[in-house]
Amino acid sequence: MLSRQGSQMRRLARAKLDEIGNMLRALLPRLPHAPRGGWIAGTREALGMSRSDLARRLGVSPGSVTKLEMSERAGSIRIDTLRRAASAMDCELVILVVPRQPLQSMVDQRRLQRYGADIDRAATHMSLEDQSISETMRRHLLQQAEAAIPDSTLWRESPIG
């Protein structure tokens, strides 16, 4: 019972995140690329703020701001450092992890992949009869897979069991 509730809670969480993910995936192609010198330098320069001004606001040396901007361009900046720099320029830092496809689709695909032996057998029998797996059959197989493969084991590389 507890496991089933946990599974339902994860499904609900995926549905909520999928709503947001769908919106963000539609938005991603329209987002601008980072300014040539990086977001910190681009924002700082657009504000008319010198490196010395930003350094003073951060309580560091101007050379540290140069290193900070270089580490952002190199992709090695620490998130807390980026957050402090954004705050010093009265900006918000937004970091997003956007799934390439809906989370529920990813889970369903993985579950069906792990449950593949039974699906392959069903597909083989159906292809011999010149049939394809219908959406109803797919849902049925997915229900069986959900019963056999809990969410907690989906991403393990070892065989089920």
Rank of each mutant, 00 (worst) to 15 (best):
29 P>W: 01
94 V>S: 06
29 P>Y: 01
89 M>P: 11
158 S>N: 12
83 R>W: 03
137 M>L: 15
93 L>P: 03
153 T>R: 07
44 R>T: 02
51 R>E: 08
120 D>F: 06
46 A>F: 04
156 R>P: 00
100 R>T: 12
160 I>L: 09
5 Q>D: 07
130 D>P: 00
41 A>C: 04
144 Q>P: 08
99 P>N: 05
134 S>E: 12
153 T>Q: 11
156 R>H: 15
98 V>N: 14
44 R>E: 01
59 G>Y: 10
87 S>D: 15
85 A>G: 09
159 P>W: 10
17 L>K: 07
51 R>I: 00
108 D>R: 14
89 M>Q: 15
66 T>N: 13
81 T>W: 12
54 L>P: 00
41 A>W: 04
119 I>E: 01
79 I>T: 11
103 L>K: 04
106 M>K: 09
89 M>R: 14
54 L>A: 10
28 L>Q: 12
143 Q>P: 03
90 D>S: 14
47 L>R: 13
139 R>A: 15
126 M>V: 02
91 C>K: 15
119 I>Y: 04
132 S>L: 09
12 L>G: 03
19 E>D: 14
116 G>P: 00
151 D>F: 14
124 T>G: 04
117 A>Q: 12
1 M>G: 10
115 Y>N: 04
97 V>F: 06
5 Q>G: 03
119 I>Q: 03
98 V>A: 13
71 S>T: 14
14 R>A: 06
68 L>Q: 06
92 E>H: 11
13 A>R: 04
60 V>I: 12
